[in-house]
Design a protein around this nucleic acid. Structure first.
Lengths: 339, 339
DNA sequence: TTGTAGGCGTTATCAC
DNA sequence: GTGATAACGCCTACAA
């Protein structure tokens, strides 16, 4: 087995004190340049590696950021996580990641792990059915910053980074109405989750403003994945009176739904105009191209990570009532253009 | 600021020794059941949390698995990572993740971070241009297991988990030839990378076996993303003599290419039969549906994680010459069916 | 500019 | 069953 080199070994070898070695290796300014170089060189030569455990134990800092996401199965989440990792990596932070698999129980468990791992900060997008954020209190109590993104909880305890889901949904629905749609269906997720609730509210408001009635049978709640999208398509095909517009709360399921409808002989957008949400690559590939909302996922990840890291570095402090709203807007493509 | 509770605090409170506390908390069998319960309860009550730094320092184990991936931007990578995280989490391991962004330099840097973080084991899919795996020697030398998946290096130092890229590519190409294609184009990535090299070789072999000549102008190397797929489409549209078949090395770029071709008035599969690779969701949504290879991404992640964890637990040992080949096969869909 | 010394919180090895 | 004690490797007052 390999013998690990420590600063004591270097100290003995160079006839210096461990303190000097430690300082040199962390580039302390009060160390003679020549000594420093000598130390760094022999450290390299002997294959020394700093022991982060000892260092973290002493400094009470892990240099690690925890990320909790619902599930790594969408283009959106992958983009956010990719951006977070990039920023964190560039700033010398490690990322430890875990999935709640859309379950609060698991989210709470993940929370405990992160807590025990003593992450310096936390980035979180909530599970489907998370109804309160008490399990983050232990972080807050100890001053460990927690930033929520996308799937947040309406509570001023923590920073939230979001888009204007209400407005986006309002815009989509209004656009469909302007195309002449009068029976606009909304396919969405769990309405307990803020993002879906807000999109639903935006949809309702737009209907009202367009003088259209809300009809219960035009609201479909599901898991918003490929399968549920297809199921929605089948359900629609079986309806006595078809909708003439569909606003889906994400692109994956909406594209899948559209696919089934086309297979069923429905003309898009002629018979049914369709719009999704997220601007996933798939929205640009399906035919007709999907009208959607341009959700700046990568940017959201960058901002979440940057905000957290700046706060940790003391560069800027995050107030507890901060909400950051990113710009997101309607992209009109042919799937919704009746005219 | 919060005062952290340590086992000393518990010891004092309960008039026991720190050693007993430690044993009780790690469920040591030689501790009286009643004492154990008392200890665990007060630990809970006082909000004690074990200090993993101290523990890791003492035990010389981090309970952490490092994962290095090229980039978190494909359905494939997200699936693998999702599976790895799930398995690791279920087994009590943490995941620390980093992206090489397809650059060896960054991969080497990530390697150093992981090394310093003292991961217990490493799961790696190589960057585009990684030409040797010397930067993993330091792990191997210290007996830290490294498992490569998908993008591997032909070297018996480490375990490799792969699919039979050669055979898959051979099958795809042969299928296209059987459909009557005689000018089969291959759109691929960096041929230095094993997966693309093998697919290329399979393609060449199939051409030979089908009595078809290999033509340089029917080989296109790119980044295999949405943009490069579209660019390939444009390039094809500008060709004097069109190919009558396309085998793309992934679904994302192939779907994008097909989209451009359709826009350009090409009938698929009539004029050009098309096949991709990976069985991404997009392959089931585009029209016509994409013939592809069913790459078991999630399963690959599960197996990689399980193999590593079992090895770490001493359950099973991984020999240094192990190659695990997962089953992957051709899925024929309408994009390639001329008849 | 460098050295001394104590402590960060655990766990493993002896003892009893 | 439980306790005493010595590492694990690093950092940082405080001294020199």
């Amino acid at each position: 087995m390999h013998k690990e080199i420590t600063i004591y070994d270097l100290a003995k070898k160079l006839k210096l004190s461990p303190a000097t070695i430690s300082r040199a290796l962390s580039d302390h300014r009060a160390i003679n340049k020549k000594t420093k170089k000598k130390i760094v060189d022999t450290a390299e030569a002997l294959g020394y590696r700093s022991n982060t455990f000892a260092s973290s134990l002493r400094k009470k800092k892990s240099n690690t950021i925890g990320v909790i996401i619902p599930r790594l199965n969408s283009h959106f989440v992958a983009s956010v996580l990719g951006a977070v990792e990039k920023i964190a990596n560039d700033s010398g932070y490690n990322i430890i990641m875990s999935q709640s698999m859309e379950s609060v129980a698991r989210e709470i468990a993940n929370t405990k792990t992160m807590f025990n791992s003593r992450v310096d900060g936390l980035l979180v997008s909530l599970a489907y059915d998370t109804g309160n954020i008490d399990h983050f209190d232990k972080f807050i109590k100890r001053g460990i910053p927690v930033i929520f993104f996308d799937r947040v909880f309406e509570d001023d305890k923590c920073v939230r980074i979001v888009i204007d889901n209400f407005k986006n949904a309002y815009d989509v629905t209004t656009h469909l109405a302007a195309q002449g749609c009068t029976r606009i269906m909304h396919i969405t997720g769990n309405l307990k989750r803020n993002v879906y609730a807000e999109r639903y509210n935006g949809y309702r408001k737009a209907l009202r403003d367009a003088g259209l009635p809300f009809q219960k049978d035009l609201l479909l709640s599901g898991e918003l994945n490929e399968a549920s999208g297809a199921a929605a398509g089948e359900k629609i095909l079986a309806m006595k009176k078809l909708p003439d517009g569909i606003f889906g709360a994400n692109d994956t399921s909406t594209a899948s739904c559209m696919h089934v409808l086309k297979q069923g002989g429905i003309r898009i957008p002629g018979q049914i105009a369709i719009a999704g949400f997220n601007n996933d690559p798939i929205s640009r590939i399906v035919e007709p191209n999907l009208t959607t909302i341009n959700y700046p996922a990568y940017q959201m990840g960058e901002i979440a990570a940057t905000t957290l890291i700046n706060h940790l570095a003391g560069v800027s402090s995050i107030s507890n009532t901060n909400i950051i709203v990113l710009r997101s807007e309607l992209i009109i493509r042919s799937s919704s253009l009746k005219k």
